[in-house]
Design a protein around this nucleic acid. Structure first.
Lengths: 156, 156
DNA sequence: TATTGTTATACTCTATAACTATA
DNA sequence: TATAGTTATAGAGTATAACAATA
């Protein structure tokens, strides 16, 4: 099941990366005004979304879960905490670690922002037929579970 | 056709941006080893791919076409030119503009790199059923034509 | 005066290394 | 000594502003 040789010729489709990466940037750009309206940074919003799923025991684990550096999220957490959107409490069992959780207020803000974001995304998705759209979301969720080193060719 | 209210509850799906943007980063990370093997930077490769489609008359237009700043691509073009992968000639009609085109060597390099990249991407796509996959690529190409300001909600 | 390409500068984002407090 | 969190520093990538050549 090898596709016809493309040596010396034009490819039959654009690179997947060339389609996906710019679309990702577009979607993030579209989020920015909504986030600004909720006084949230992209990372702040990402933290709130992540904490909604399940509480996280260490900041390092939280950082890794959202693809950030542990040093990078600290000012983000400071800000979210100052504004009462998250709690950060020392674990009684191990006072080195901070238990991070979302507050009721944080949950409200996240819900409001996410609602607006997804409404906007629905408008974009409305451009494609319902069946295609379901398949698209299915594939997207499947592929985003895959990490880079799972399919990278071993270097020659 | 409004979906059920999500106010105060968990969303029914992750944000589109949260699926697409990380996948884009993964795909770009997967390209890096292949590009390095071809002695190409991401931007250098992007330039070669773009020039394959159709020659570009000004560097500014080239930059815009690939989503870069006009100042950013200059060292990239310098390098590609030094290595004989592109040509950069003053337009006789307007000596301010540089006609940028890919050389035969540049075409060979791009073909080889793109072939390897797309083979790798095919391995990733092999995880999903053929029908879903066709729909996925269809939707992807449709959506990547849309620019951010076409679907962003007017700020309140 | 306006525009293309270029260079120089500043700024943002991110990662690395060094520090503290607990264990 | 090892680890969680924090702070300070340095680096990469990017955008902004100023400049030279041509129109």
């Amino acid at each position: 099941m090898r596709r016809k040789s493309t040596s010396g010729s034009r490819p039959t489709r654009p690179d997947l990366a060339a389609l996906v990466a710019p679309l990702g940037r577009t979607l993030m750009a579209a989020e920015l005004p909504v986030l600004r309206a909720h006084d949230l940074s992209m990372w702040g919003y990402t933290v709130l979304v992540r904490l909604e799923d399940e509480p996280v025991r260490t900041q390092a684990a939280l950082a890794q879960a959202i693809g950030a550096d542990k040093t990078r999220i600290i000012p983000i957490l400071d800000d979210l905490q100052d504004r009462g959107l998250i709690r950060r409490e020392p674990d009684p069992d191990d006072r080195r670690v901070r238990l991070v959780s979302v507050t009721a207020k944080g949950r409200r803000v996240r819900t409001s922002a996410q609602d607006a974001i997804q409404r906007q995304e629905e408008r974009l998705l409305a451009r494609v037929p319902a069946a295609d759209r379901r398949a698209f979301l299915r594939v997207l969720q499947e592929l985003s579970r895959v990490s880079a080193d799972e399919f990278i060719d071993p270097p020659a």
